[in-house]
Amino acid sequence: MKGEIIFGVIAVLFVASFMYGLAANPDSEFGGADGQAGDAIAEINSDYVPWTEDSWINSIKFEPPGGETESLLFGLQAAFGALVIGYFFGYYKGKGQSN
């Protein structure tokens, strides 16, 4: 139980730090750090245009039409991963008990 308790305490501290972040940044939408980096690049070099803008590279990729589809794909990614982890932990546990 000790491990779970320590993890729980750290998780609560994480949520508390987020709450503090909410209070300290009342206007923030908590956008991605990568987006902020994009803004910083624009500040350093305002002429910079991603050189792949009109490249064929974009045609082999799927661009989610909006935030909803994007969150679906991220959700699927997490669900798939969690499924694999749960399946094999269960497999090992069951195998260990039957021996």
Binding site: S17, Y20, G21, F30, G32, F74, G75, A78, V84
Partner: peptide, 21 residues
């Protein structure tokens, strides 16, 4: 499991104290 752990964690965009995620 190790690969799936990367799948799960890298899909979780978490808010941070700095006001970004």
């Amino acid at each position: 499991v190790a690969g799936a752990f990367i799948f799960v964690l890298s899909s979780l965009k978490m808010p941070s104290v700095t006001g970004s995620s």
